[in-house]
């Protein structure tokens, strides 16, 4: 119990620190690298919650593929550290931070009013079996959604190639 609490608070501090660094460092490349660390921390949080397959997919898809895409595009642009990387306006900035803090406060209030302990129910999946059950569920109950997702990915792949090949960027004349 005690070790679990210490591990959770260390993980939470790690995640909050690195996600704060993502939004506060002026260099976009450093933001991307801190985001990789945040993704890896979230993968270990998923592992703690008994979602081994999701943790693996998080590492492969997010920390691997998506962040490589981000870093590659940043390298392509050759962006230096920006002089003014935050939006101007003290009052509007304060309002933006306050609205985000309101969202966080709502979540914290909801969390405080629902202090239950994560005990595994009687019918829960045993740890080694989660991936098998996930696969069975994905190919039976959610088969239609899975196929639709494949079609969506095909459309997105074609659309991305079409958008990035537009001559003259967004101001192309036809």
């Amino acid at each position: 119990m005690m070790m679990e609490a210490i591990a959770f608070y260390m993980l939470a501090g790690f995640l909050i620190f690195f996600s704060y660094k993502v939004i506060s460092v002026p260099n976009p490349l450093h933001s991307a690298l801190y985001l990789v660390l945040t993704m890896l921390g979230l993968a270990s949080a998923f592992f703690n919650l008994g979602a081994q397959f999701i943790a693996g997919v998080q590492v492969i898809v997010y920390a691997g593929a998506v962040m490589v895409l981000f870093v590659m595009v940043l390298m392509l642009f050759d962006l230096k550290t920006e002089i003014r990387s935050f939006s101007r306006g003290l009052i509007s900035g304060a309002l933006k931070v306050m609205s985000a803090a309101l969202i966080a406060g709502l979540a914290l209030g909801g969390a405080r009013s629902s202090v239950t302990v994560l005990d595994a129910p009687a019918g829960a999946a045993v740890p080694g079996d989660v991936t098998r059950q996930l696969g069975i569920l994905l190919y039976t109950k959610y088969l239609f959604a899975f196929e639709i997702l494949g079609i969506l990915l095909l459309a997105v792949a074609v659309g991305v190639v079409a958008v990035s090949r537009m001559k003259g960027g967004t101001h192309a004349r036809h």
Binding site: S19, T38, I103, A104, A107, L108, G110, A111, S114
Partner: peptide, 10 residues
């Protein structure tokens, strides 16, 4: 949920 809310607000 609290951790999730904090990361979401960031």
């Amino acid at each position: 949920i609290a951790l999730s809310g904090i990361i979401f607000s960031f």
